[in-house]
Design a binder for these strands. Structure first.
Lengths: 254, 254
DNA sequence: GGGTGATTTCCGGTCAGCGGGACACCGGCA
DNA sequence: TGCCGGTGTCCCGCTGACCGGAAATCACCC
C-alpha cells in the first residue's frame, strides 16, 4: 500500500502505527512502520503533538494524546450506547461473574465497545477497541444475523477463518446458524475461539427496532447454559429499552 | 482566533466543533463554527469521512467516527489506567451506590476518565471526557496537592471560579486545603459544585509513587463521611497496587 | 574515541490544497 | 405551481504550504 499523497492521509497512516500491541513508538519507528520519510514524519509528529493528538512520555516515546481520547469518546458508540449500557452490563457481570462484552458491527468485523472482567480474569483475548471476525463470536453472529442482506451475503462468501475445530467453517453452516439466531433471538458460540469456553449473546435494539449492538457473556465449558442465557437476554432487552426501544408492533409510519 | 494555515490545524479546528453538547453537526454548521469556507470544509470533511475519522448518520449529520474512538482508547489514560481501575471502581460503586469517578489532571483542569452512576442517577454533571477546575472538586484537590510545584503556583494564582458560596475562593484558603490534603491523604470537597452534595477523593499512585489519578465518590449532604471515606481510600490504594505501586520505602536508586 | 542510530534543522522546487463561484437539491410558503 | 433560503456538491486556475534529501546535532554503547 503506497503512502497517500494528502497530508491527512499521511497523518492517519502515522496514527495507524499505534495499535493495542504497540501503544507507543519512537519517531524512527513511526517513520519505518508508516513508510514516510523521516523528516516528513518529524514534521507531522511535531504538529500532532502541538494539537495534543500525540503526547511524548517521559522516555521520549510518543503515545496517543488526550485530545484524541476526548474526541473519541464523543463518537456515538461510546457516548450513547456505552453510557446507557454500562449499568446493565454491571448487573449482568454481578450475576454471572464472567467476562461481559458489548460490541457493535463495523462492516465484516465485530468491534468490542466495552468489556467487564474480574480483577483476576484469565483470558484477556478481547479489550475495548479490539476486533474479531463475525462468524466466530457470539456477538458477531447476533449482529450478522440482523445485518442488511448484502452484508450477510458478503460475510457468507468470505473465507471463514478457523480458530478451533469447532469454528463454523462452511457457508451453509453459517447460513443455518444465522437462521436459528434470528428464530431464537440469541446466539451461542460454542468453543469457536478457545476450546475451553463458549459465549452466549443477545441483541440490543435501537428505537426503530433494528439491532445496533450485542451483549455477550463468555463462560467456561462446564457452565450450564440455562444459568446465563436468561440473564443475557434480559440484559439485552434492558439496554434496548434504555435506548428507547418499545415492544409490540412498531408505530405505523404516517 | 484566526484559522490555522496548516491542514492539520484546520482539520483539528473542524473536529473541535464536536463537543459533548454538540456531538453531531451538518456540513454548514461545521463550516460556520470552524470559520472555514464551505468548500474547504466540504473537502476536508470528505477526506475525514474516507478515513472514518468522521461518519455520516442516517440524517446526513456528521459525527465522530469509529476510527477516532479506536485511536482514542489507545491513549495511556484509557488503556492502562481505566482498564485496571474499572473493577475496583465497580466494587466502590457496589458498596456506596453513588456516583464514582476516576479523573486525571490536564494542566489546570480535571478530566474525568471514567464515571459510574446508577441507572436512575439524578445529576449528570460529569461524564467521560468532561472537564472541571481543580480547586472546586475533590479529585482536583487531590491531583493539585500532589502536582509539581509550578503547577500549584499557577493554579493558586489563577482566578478561582465560584460555583456555590462554599467554593474555595481565596488563594490562602486553597493553599491551606492543599496542605491538609497532603497531610491527610484524602480530600473532601464540601458543597463546592452543588449545594446539596459533597465528594470524597483519594489519590491513585503509579509504580514510582507519584499521583497519577484520583478516585472520588459524590454523596448527598446527609451521608456520614465515615461511611464512605475508608472505602474510597481503600479503592485508591487498590488501584495503585494494581498499577504496580508498592508500600514502604521506595527502592533506592542505583 | 569513533561508530551507530535517533533526532532535529534547513531550504529551494513543486504540487496539493485553496476557495470563489456555479449548480443541484429540498422543504416550506404563498 | 413557482419562488426562496438553506444545504450540499463540484469545478478549476492560482499559489504558498508542504516535501524530503542532506547535513548538523545528540545520545549511547562497545
Amino acid at each position: 500500500m503506497p503512502v497517500p499523497r494528502s497530508i491527512l492521509g499521511r497523518a492517519f497512516t502515522l496514527l495507524a502505527v499505534f495499535t493495542a500491541d504497540r501503544p507507543s513508538a519512537t519517531l524512527s519507528e513511526l517513520s519505518r512502520h508508516s513508510g514516510l520519510p523521516l523528516s516528513t514524519t518529524h514534521r507531522l509528529v511535531r504538529e500532532l503533538v502541538a494539537w495534543r493528538a500525540l503526547e511524548r512520555d517521559a522516555d521520549g516515546r510518543f503515545t496517543i494524546g488526550l485530545r484524541l481520547w476526548e474526541l473519541g469518546v464523543l463518537s456515538p458508540g461510546a457516548l450513547d450506547l456505552r453510557d446507557r449500557a454500562l449499568p446493565y452490563l454491571e448487573d449482568l457481570f454481578e450475576v454471572t461473574h464472567h467476562n461481559v462484552q458489548l460490541a457493535i458491527r463495523d462492516d465484516l468485523e465485530v468491534v468490542y465497545v466495552e468489556r467487564l472482567a474480574a480483577k483476576d480474569a484469565v483470558s484477556v483475548l478481547t479489550r475495548m477497541g479490539s476486533r474479531m471476525p463475525l462468524h466466530a463470536t457470539g456477538v458477531g453472529l447476533v449482529l450478522l444475523a440482523h445485518a442488511p442482506h448484502d452484508v450477510q451475503e458478503r460475510a457468507v462468501h468470505t473465507p471463514l477463518k478457523r480458530f478451533t475445530p469447532h469454528t463454523i467453517g462452511t457457508s451453509t453452516a453459517l447460513r443455518e446458524t444465522l437462521a436459528s439466531v434470528r428464530r431464537d433471538g440469541y446466539a451461542i458460540s460454542d468453543r469457536q475461539i478457545e476450546p475451553i469456553t463458549y459465549s452466549v449473546a443477545a441483541p440490543v435494539r435501537g428505537p426503530d427496532g433494528d439491532v445496533v449492538a450485542a451483549v455477550s457473556v463468555v463462560v467456561p465449558l462446564e457452565t450450564r447454559t440455562d444459568t446465563v442465557l436468561p440473564a443475557v437476554r434480559a440484559c439485552g432487552r434492558a439496554i434496548s429499552r434504555s435506548l428507547g426501544w418499545r415492544t409490540g408492533p412498531p408505530t405505523p409510519k404516517p
